[in-house]
């Protein structure tokens, strides 16, 4: 699956391991929350990067205490219509202070990229390589934002306040 990061397609060093599949001897791996909770001690002992994949129904709070151990969280969109991962992303960034890679996986479509980026995602598993141009367009087609989120973009309210003459 092509991986889009910082506006470019990049090689994906991470191996996503399904539940029940044996762990590779080395390399950075992503496991499900269930597996993480079950095999936590073994996993922490590994030398390489660790990531956890949250299903849409998993609450971000369930992994909050372990975030210092993790370099990546993948949030699943079982369908683009399921918006639970947007809340999880904001909680991970804004409430739990997660600084690692926040990756959108599953049904990740071009027209949702801006929403995802605003909620704190910085990596996207996309379906095809046309994604770079689409990414550029998705990031540039709207420049006015009406609410604070996890992305640090200035809101319309902030810009209005700056614009107002100082008196």
């Amino acid at each position: 699956m092509p991986l889009l990061k910082n506006g470019s397609l990049v090689d994906d060093p991470w191996i996503s391991v399904a539940d029940g599949e044996p762990l590779p001897a080395e390399g950075a791996i992503i496991v499900s929350l269930t597996r993480w909770q079950k095999e936590r001690a073994n996993l922490i002992a590994r030398a390489n990067g660790l990531g956890v994949r949250l299903a849409a129904a998993d609450h971000a709070g369930a992994i909050a205490a372990d975030l210092p151990l993790l370099a990546l969280i993948a949030l699943e969109f079982p369908t683009f219509r399921d918006g639970r991962a947007y809340s999880s992303a904001r909680l991970l960034r804004e409430r739990f202070g997660f600084k690692g890679e926040l990756r959108a996986v599953g049904n990740v479509l071009r027209d949702q990229l801006l929403f995802m980026h605003r909620c704190g995602f910085d990596a996207f598993e996309v379906k095809d390589t046309a994604a770079v141009d689409e990414w550029k367009q998705a990031m540039s087609e709207i420049s006015v934002f009406y609410q604070a989120a996890a992305d640090g973009r200035a809101t319309a309210i902030q810009l209005r306040q700056q614009r107002r003459p100082q008196s």
């Binding site: 399921d82 918006g83 947007y86 995802m116 009406y146 609410q147 309210i157």
Partner: peptide
């Protein structure tokens, strides 16, 4: 209206 317009978290409720 302004707060809810293209709210990134709440557009796929």
């Amino acid at each position: 209206r302004q707060w809810s317009t293209l709210h990134p978290e709440f557009s796929f409720l």
